[in-house]
């Protein structure tokens, strides 16, 4: 019971790190990037190659995955995405689904369609007993990293100049431009950092969830659930939504394996209908 809760929290925090970039870019530019998961996949595969083929320590792989996905995100943002901000949502959806398809095929070609399994260092394997619950060391590691990142993100958003400019741009892009805030630059930076976080999340996830070429499509739905439940105006909303989803998913698969997915999708649709702006958002916004 406690183990499931713990696993769920670890999974949820991972989902948060994977998806937070999408939440912010969606709130910032009203841009639907269904290909967000592809950046996570890129980070994940980079980590797998580094660890399995070159035997590099996971502690080096994680920052490398971040940098790699961030650079990839920045590159694609400047060359491709930038042409789509003023296009219709349909175009954005088609374009980013197209990117997902391309990414899946390339990974399939380069790495094969089978699941990737990483060899974790012994220090991260095994389980420890805590209050009678058996807890995976690696999951503890994931929670620690994601927790640190979340605190860091919250600090950047709440306390730094960049953070206040970003919040202003999300609240009202036009007004922010009027105040001389360079929304384009902020967006490019946010896109890159968001992609980088996704990459880092992808690298972390290799020890918990399976990595194969269908990853971006499979997790796209989870990201959308996080957004629809958490909203895009804060990062605490998506955070709690991710934890909730993580726990619900793990518990659902454990207790009612037959209808787990069904329950989650139903919750998503229900939230969308009852609270189109998200469950954890201020109702007075806009």
């Amino acid at each position: 019971m406690l183990t499931i809760l713990f696993d769920g929290i670890a999974y949820g925090m991972l989902l948060f790190i994977l998806g937070i970039g999408l939440c912010i870019t969606l709130g910032l530019m009203n841009f639907i990037n269904l290909a967000h998961g592809a950046f996570a996949m890129a980070g994940g595969y980079l980590a797998v190659v580094m660890m399995n083929s070159y035997g590099i320590s996971i502690y080096w792989c994680l920052p490398a995955a971040f940098v790699f996905s961030a650079l990839l995100g920045a590159l694609l943002e400047r060359t491709l995405y930038v042409h789509l901000y003023d296009k219709s949502h349909l175009d954005q959806v088609l374009f980013s689904i197209g990117l997902v398809f391309i990414a899946m095929a390339i990974v399939d070609y380069a790495m094969g369609a089978n699941q990737q399994i990483v060899n974790l260092p012994p220090s991260l394997e095994g389980r420890i007993d805590f209050l009678g619950a058996s807890i995976g060391v690696y999951r503890l590691f994931v929670i620690a990293i994601c927790g640190l990142l979340t605190v860091g993100l919250q600090f950047v958003l709440a306390k730094t100049r960049f953070g206040s400019r970003l919040r202003a741009a999300v609240d009202d892009g036009r007004a922010a431009r009027g105040l001389g805030i360079n929304v384009t630059t902020i967006f490019a930076l946010t896109f890159a950092v968001g992609s980088g976080l996704a990459g880092l999340g992808g690298a972390l996830s290799t020890g918990i969830i399976s990595l194969d070429p269908t990853f971006p499509l499979k997790y796209m739905i989870y990201f959308l659930i996080v957004i629809s439940v958490g909203g895009t105006t804060t990062i605490t909303g998506p955070f709690f939504a991710s934890i909730l989803l993580g726990v619900a998913d793990v518990a659902g698969k454990y207790y009612v394996p037959a209808v787990g997915g069904f329950i989650i999708y139903t919750i998503m649709v229900a939230v969308l209908i009852l609270r189109p702006q998200g469950l954890f958002t201020r109702s007075t916004s806009r």
């Binding site: 491709l80 789509l84 296009k87 175009d91 088609l94 374009f95 689904i97 197209g98 990117l99 997902v100 398809f101 391309i102 990414a103 899946m104 095929a105 390339i106 399939d108 070609y109």
Partner: peptide, 14 residues
Amino acid sequence: YWSLWLGLVLVLLV
């Protein structure tokens, strides 16, 4: 790798 070409078509189309 059919999906690669499908994706390319989508991206170019848009």
